[in-house]
Write a protein that binds this DNA or RNA. Structure first.
Length: 711
DNA sequence: AGCACGCCGACT
DNA sequence: GTCGGCGTGCTC
């Protein structure tokens, strides 16, 4: 439903309308104790009505509200500025009483309102800074629609909170464009130099870039930005974390100096971050490097959006409506006719789909170069017995132990250990094929001791047999490899052990022999040529996660770690403890993330999984879910899976928004639609949810488009 | 979400 | 006659 719905029909004509407005202002003057903000106000002579996006109140209705612009505010009340308005009061004894003062944004100035009642005046223009510019508003609108969310929620993500001191300072005029950069290491990709040239020329090329292993990708991303800047356009680079942002920032500064770009990350602090954001919004700076919140940065004349490592969960915003940076940047590339670069050492199924559908072109190096640049990969199955005494002490297969020992003679060795807290999933005890539902192919769970139930559709599976090998025994896959890493340190007593993990993340380690123990995503970059060897210990924990993406995610984390190890020509070797016949393990050995993603994509298409189909998750009390789905005009062919009970959140964990209230058991249904029906699905769920909120039928249900945790 | 209006039962 | 129960509907 569009925001125009629910508006009253055509009201008075223009003359009457103006008279009504004037009367309303006079009445306010006469009856109120004249607050300073509108004392003596006459409506502005031109376009006296401000269309306002109100920040509180009926966010779910997603409508604008019209207010009179007092003449005194005429100059400052431009579209995009923050305002305060009275909202939510009714009539009291025939007089207009002010409601609560709430803040909002002017989205437009118009000559007349189609509201038939008496308009209230703007209470205050908070700041003359036009922060919600028309372009940014259009982006927020598109993202809200895509994710069945409200415009106000998305605007809150897109526009940083105001800091008056930052606004007071003027931003310097933009520097003239730099000279185009040399292609540098982009030469290693056949299409690389052409891609940069197209960006400088002003074209909008789109590429999915499979980066060669090594530490050059920050420089390559920076060169793409520099090439865009050289053509007089802006660039936006989004990376998963502050560490990556700092590396790209250093690379871009080396290429174009300072003053042409800003770094938008959380660690700058709110005021400095807002100051930098303003520099972008004011057109003083045309390039942005940042973490996911930067995906909305209002870059002037956007020529390139780039995203690094879209498989990283940090790209999914945890705030409603939980937009993903990849989808937002796709929207921007289309809406603002900008170039698009999706890069990573690995490849997500979504990235593969962009190439398969022809929306983007592959940007890859040839196989020879990949083989030469990547380390040698050796696999060790779980069953391999440790023969050496020392290897047995470290609880390691002897080959893995040898790889570490050999590596330590030449430099640092990276050991990847799993993080705690991965839920085990059920798989065939003989061949390790995940146990899946015969009806909908969802993952099977074992809530009780014996019963098997599908986590998606709830169907019981009393007589499970493995689809691959016919085995009838299941095993839950659990690992505790952290201890192994500790024992590994004891096995090499002469070598320093450094750890990098959640609380203590190291950016770099020196190029000297050391054991560097890290959880996935926290791997330090080794100075010099890189790690001499790597040991990937978390195979079962990664592959055992009850998630559709388990294989893709395991491969991504392995490749990310292995990419920090020297190439095999320089003696780099990586040992991975995982069953060598598994598809992600084979893709690692061949260093073929694209092949893996393409096969996953084909399989998802066959099984009707996202991203080939589109899904939404609806969570809440069972009867509320049923009522919402019944009232929603779901697109034709929409399929409802479940609902099934939601796993009870860990009682030790503090309650997060989205968790069921204590004592209530919630369920989750999945709605699946055919490709191309995602927008219709989002619109239907949004409308149904809004209607129920208005009528106050039952408790609120949560709607999530593209749920990331598809068991 | 608030908050006011409105239409029915026990008080002064 | 009047206070107040909370059902229903609106917020520029």
């Amino acid at each position: 439903m569009s925001r125009e719905d629910g508006r009253q029909g055509a009201g008075a004509d223009a003359g009457e309308q103006l008279a009504l407005i004037r009367a309303s202002v006079r009445e306010t003057k006469a009856t109120r104790a004249k607050p300073r903000t509108w004392r003596g106000a006459e409506p502005a002579a031109e376009l006296p009505v401000a269309r306002v996006l109100v920040d509180k109140g009926l966010v779910h209705l997603d409508r604008y509200f019209d207010y009179v612009v007092p003449a005194a505010m005429d100059a400052e009340a431009r579209p995009g500025v923050r305002v305060r308005v009275r909202f939510g009061a009714g009539e009291k004894g025939g007089r207009r009483e002010g409601g609560k003062l709430v803040s909002g944004f002017i989205v437009d100035r118009v000559a007349e309102s189609d509201f038939r009642g008496v308009l209230a005046p703007l209470a205050q223009v908070l700041s003359p800074e036009p922060v919600l510019t028309p372009g940014l508003l259009a982006l927020c609108r598109a993202v809200a629609d895509r994710y069945a969310g409200s415009l106000a929620d998305v605007v809150q993500l897109a526009v940083p909170p105001r800091r008056a001191r930052a606004e007071a300072k003027e931003s310097p005029p933009p520097l003239p464009p730099n000279a185009p950069p040399e292609p540098g290491s982009w030469q290693r990709y056949a299409a690389g130099p052409g891609f940069l040239a197209a960006l400088t020329r002003g074209d909008a090329p789109r590429a999915v870039w499979t980066a060669l292993p090594g530490a050059t990708w920050p420089d390559e991303l920076a060169r793409a930005a520099a090439a865009t800047l050289a053509g007089g356009r802006g660039a936006l680079l989004v990376v998963p974390d502050g560490r990556a942002a700092a590396r790209v920032d250093a690379a871009l500064t080396a290429l174009v100096g300072s003053g042409r770009h800003v770094l938008l990350t959380a660690d700058a602090g709110p005021e400095e971050r807002y100051r930098r954001w303003l520099a972008v919004s004011r057109g003083s700076v045309r390039a942005v490097i940042g973490t996911r919140a930067a995906m909305f940065a209002p870059v002037d004349r956007l020529g390139l959006v780039a995203l690094w490592d879209d498989g990283d969960a940090a790209h999914s915003d945890p705030h409603a409506p939980q937009p993903h940076a990849r989808e937002v940047l796709i929207q921007r590339a289309v809406g603002e006719r900008a170039g698009f670069l999706l890069g990573g050492v690995s490849c997500t199924v979504e990235a593969a789909q962009l190439v398969e559908t022809g929306w983007a072109h592959p940007l890859t190096a040839d196989r020879e170069r990949v083989r030469a640049t990547a380390p040698r990969i050796r696999t060790v199955g779980e069953g391999d017995e440790a023969r050496d005494e020392a290897a047995r002490a470290a609880r390691l297969p002897s080959m893995a132990w040898q790889v570490v020992r050999e590596g330590l003679r030449h430099g640092p060795v990276l050991v990847q250990v799993p993080r705690r807290g991965y839920a085990p999933r059920l798989a065939c005890a003989r061949c390790r094929t995940p146990a899946r539902c015969r009806a909908c192919a969802g993952p099977l769970e074992s809530p009780g001791a014996d019963d098997l139930v599908c986590a998606w559709c709830g169907r019981a599976e009393p007589d499970w047999h493995c689809a691959e090998c016919g085995g009838a025994r299941l095993r839950a896959q659990v690992v505790g490899a952290r201890r192994t890493a500790e024992e590994l340190g004891r096995a090499f007593p002469a070598v320093p052990v450094r750890t990098s993990g959640r609380d203590h993340v190291l950016a770099t380690v020196p190029d000297t022999p050391a054991l560097v123990v890290s959880t996935p995503g926290a791997e330090p970059v080794a100075e010099g040529p890189g790690y001499a060897a790597g040991l990937l210990l978390d195979g079962w924990a990664l592959l055992g996660r009850p998630d559709l993406r388990a294989g893709e995610e395991a491969l991504r984390r392995w490749l990310t770690a292995a990419a920090l190890v020297r190439g095999q020509e320089a003696g780099g070797t990586v040992a991975v403890i995982a069953e060598p016949t598994l598809r992600p393990v084979q893709a690692l050995v061949r260093w073929d993330p694209v092949g893996h993603a393409v096969r996953e994509l084909a399989e998802r298409a066959e099984l009707g999984f996202p991203p080939v189909s589109r899904m939404a998750a609806v969570t809440g009390r069972p009867d509320d879910i049923a009522a919402l789905l019944a009232s929603a005009g779901l697109p034709p062919g929409a399929e409802v899976l479940g609902p099934v009970p939601l796993p009870v959140p860990d009682p030790g964990r503090p309650r997060r928004p989205g968790d069921p209230p204590p004592g209530e058991s919630w369920e989750r249904a999945l709605v699946r639609v055919r490709p191309g029906q995602g927008a219709a699905l989002a619109a239907a769920l949004k409308a149904a949810r809004a209607a129920r909120l208005v009528k106050r039928e039952g408790e609120a249900v949560r709607v999530r488009i593209d749920p990331p945790d598809l068991g």
